[in-house]
Design a protein around this nucleic acid. Structure first.
Length: 303
DNA sequence: AACCAGATCAACCGCGTACTA
DNA sequence: ATAGTACGCGGTTGATCTGGT
């Protein structure tokens, strides 16, 4: 019953990874793809054997040239990675995965982290999904070592401002909680932030959101005469630019109505913008520089 | 040069959830 | 249905680096 153990706890190596272990892991993933981490420690035995032969010809020269003797242990391994699957996954996602950008967070990235942390809390994996080049671990470390201190410092200096931010964050979190199903979809919010990621925040984001709203209106008008159910109606409109899980569509309908009641209340069938959409649209319309757009951004601007 | 304290960050740990036999 | 495991996540640790004395 159940799955077999992931790995034998005895003989598992801990601590920093060696370059050789990295190469073995990368070789395995190149062949099998990421995932199925349980099989990595056992299957890499063959890779390791291959590595021992191959490295004596090529990698030996390369590694010896670039690395210190302490880092290189070419002939020492012949039984695969003595690492648990967890450690392999972590090493891959946090260090070896292609496209990872390390160090030197830009002011833009810093601003995004501050914003998203205020919106989502310490959901580092979610925050990292908006910064594809950064790992959740990196963002978490950067927050704990840099941003938290800066924010605390600013808090003592600008207490009244922080109270406003706290209030806004609280409101934001409540709103997010109401729409947790949608907000938790990183794909959806990535699309929302698409415009913001571009070089010209105002024009691109504003046009992006305006276009989306127009699409919604057009789509709703197309469907208006079809006498579809309200659930299908909202589902269809969201499908213009967003993915909503079918099983959660009912909740989204409810939340949309809640937002609508708080909005203009004109009774139009057009679904209202979400909180984040409103926030982004408001930002793009109220000023050219996003640093000037909200109390949260003002704070990040002070840093 | 030696020591110390603070900063940094890679890696580990524990927990909750998803999955499978 | 249930037990047991894999996976993913956030919090924490500890080794290493860096700057000051």
């Amino acid at each position: 019953m159940g799955r077999p153990p992931c790995c034998d706890k005895i003989g598992i190596k801990k601590g920093p990874w060696t370059p050789e272990e990295d190469i073995i892991l990368v070789s395995y993933i190149q062949e099998h793809g990421p995932g199925n981490w349980r099989s990595v420690p056992t299957n890499t035995g063959y890779i390791s054997l291959f590595f021992n032969i191959f490295s004596s010809c090529v990698f030996l020269f390369i590694l010896l040239f670039f690395m210190s003797p302490d880092d290189v242990c070419i002939f020492g391994i012949s039984k695969g990675l003595l690492r648990c699957s967890k450690s392999c996954r972590l090493r891959w996602t946090n260090y070896l995965r292609p496209g990872i950008k390390r160090g030197n967070f830009t002011p833009h990235e810093e601003g995004m982290i501050i914003h998203l942390q205020a919106l989502l809390g310490n959901k580092w994996a979610s925050i990292a999904s908006y910064l594809p080049q950064r790992t959740d671990n990196d963002i978490k470390n950067y927050w704990n070592t840099h941003l938290k201190k800066k924010l605390n410092k600013s808090e003592s200096e600008e207490r009244s401002l922080s109270e406003n931010i706290t209030l806004q964050t609280s409101v934001t979190r409540n709103t997010i909680n109401h729409r947790s199903t949608y907000a938790s979809s990183t794909e959806n919010i990535s699309r929302l932030l698409e415009g913001w990621m571009r070089a010209s925040p105002k024009s691109s984001t504003a046009s992006f959101l305006e276009q989306k709203q127009q699409n919604r209106t057009n789509h709703l008008m197309d469907h208006h005469n079809d006498h579809q159910s309200q659930e299908e109606h909202v589902q269809g409109s969201w499908d213009q630019g967003f993915h909503v899980h079918p099983k959660n569509s009912e909740e989204n309908v409810k939340c949309d109505h809640e937002v609508q009641e708080d909005g203009d209340g004109d009774g139009d069938a057009t679904p209202p913008l979400t909180f984040i959409e409103k926030w982004l649209l408001e930002e793009t319309n109220t000023g050219g520089q996003m640093e000037e757009m909200s109390p949260l951004m003002e704070l990040s601007n002070m840093l």
